[in-house]
Design a protein around this nucleic acid. Structure first.
Lengths: 276, 276
DNA sequence: CACTATTTGTCCGTATGTATG
DNA sequence: TCATACATACGGACAAATAGT
């Protein structure tokens, strides 16, 4: 029996997700959901024979009718085909997501990726920052800083994938739209006499706010990859805070490490927009 | 009427989540869940009066008995207190999470952080992987791999912050619970004759599925930081795929870089659970 | 004190859905 | 397919506690 292993695999799965006879959701629906997942994610593949009603009933400890109903629901959605005397076969074709193409280019820093991406400047302003930012810079209640709102997208597909909010102190002339679209922010700082000596980066995740979701072509509440980068000058003073919000569908942060025998690591971070 | 606004808010919520009379899960349970969320996240606060059974019934278009049952379930969990003639009041105290403190400790790899954390093994199984994993390992339709489900939490506060799913091929004896709780997975691989020579890590973000949310004490749909790590042996063969899902409230990935004049970087990744 | 409105508690009868053997 | 048991959901009716007039 080739499907003996299939049943076994499903059973183990059920221990995790649990078929709960006590819970409020009906058993046939729990089983249906479990089977559907196994089909959708390709655990049982196209054309494969599903377990029989009898086998399911025994394996999960339910009656045959309950197993039948679960399978009927699958059939109603055309995920399987049922034939009297022949059994039930999967008719859903699992489509693997386009494999993550090996990353192009290699970038030392998440933000300095001039070539194949496009920057749109949403806003340039010098204003009083919110309390948390003021505290980080140790600014007084009325002191100002330069805030930038920008969106980065792929040049070819015009697919927006990053939303940046940055706060900078100690700028003489501020930013201009033209400068920002041509050169990097890093360069502008350097020309303004500010030399970055150290950066601290933190990666996290958060839900997209509506205004960000709109710009990134996502829905509010969708998960975002978050990069917070604090840049310090030679004297250890914080001069810039950057919040980068990335659509994880399009952009991922990637790094590769070679291990020697001790387990010591050599790290080489890379990052790039994925190919669709 | 002071609770008019509460009802209004709940109704809007219901349009979001939707009370579905057709669906398989019973109405009283759907309503119960909706109300519970509103209480847990502080939408209706401690001591506040809940809508009456009559109001709920009208607002959601159900019978009083159904509304009553939902409220009774809340009372059974001591989330509310019910008194004849007086109504139903919230007895759950919403606790806002304290502000994130700076990180402590330093770790070479996200997974090898033995000291101050605790691992719980949810499941050990040898089963047929879903198609995407099978493809990565180049496995046939019936070949199996070893799957581990684990949860990592802080030792002191017992605060779960990471949910690991890992797939491993080429294991002789599989894993045992005892081994996993004592030594690292990395060690077990080494003893099984598998030497890891290179790893590839990708950081991303995704929404929490219900079974993960449950283990991490979060809500389904909440954003998670995702680490996917592929480990290769000396011959460049993929031997292990690890999916780490991290609660970003508790855990962040941090790295620090020193810059020289050229902009060349020396990277030192660190990661640690935050202090509450 | 009674009277009333409000709100929950309890019970009935009925129809439909779920699950078993 | 059938008979059976139990859960869900509805509408209605009445009782009991509470608070205000």
């Amino acid at each position: 029996m080739s499907n003996a292993s299939v049943i076994k695999s499903l059973l183990k799965q059920s221990k995790q997700q649990g078929l709960d006879a006590e819970g409020p959701t009906p058993l046939y629906h729990q089983l249906y959901k479990l089977l559907k997942e196994a089909i959708i994610d390709g655990t049982v593949s196209y054309g494969a024979q599903m377990p029989t009603e009898q086998q399911l009933a025994e394996a999960f400890g339910l009656s045959r009718i309950t197993a039948k109903r679960a399978m009927d629901e699958l059939a109603a959605e055309q995920l399987v085909e049922r034939k009297r005397g022949r059994g039930t076969n999967v008719t859903y074709k699992y489509k693997p997501k386009p494999v993550q193409a090996p990353l192009v280019g290699m970038l030392e820093s998440l933000e300095s990726m001039g070539r194949h991406t496009l920057i749109k400047v949403l806003d340039i302003a010098e204003l009083i920052p919110p309390a948390d930012i003021r505290q980080e810079f140790a600014l007084g209640d009325t002191e100002t800083a330069h805030r930038l709102l920008r969106v980065r997208s792929t040049e070819d597909e015009k697919l927006p994938f990053a939303y940046y909010t940055s706060w900078t102190v100690g700028l003489k002339n501020g930013f201009t739209r033209k400068l920002l679209e041509q050169t990097t922010r890093f360069e502008i700082l350097r020309k303004s006499g500010i030399q970055i000596a150290k950066i601290e980066q933190t990666l996290s995740a958060e839900a997209a706010k509506p205004e960000v979701a709109r710009e990134l072509d996502m829905r509010a509440g969708d998960p975002l990859l978050v990069l917070v980068r604090r840049s310090y000058d030679g004297d250890g003073r914080l001069v810039d805070v950057l919040h980068g919000l990335y659509n994880p569908q399009v952009f991922q942060y990637r790094m590769s490490m070679a291990l020697d025998d001790n387990g010591t690591t050599k790290v080489a971070p890379k990052a790039a927009p994925k190919k669709q």
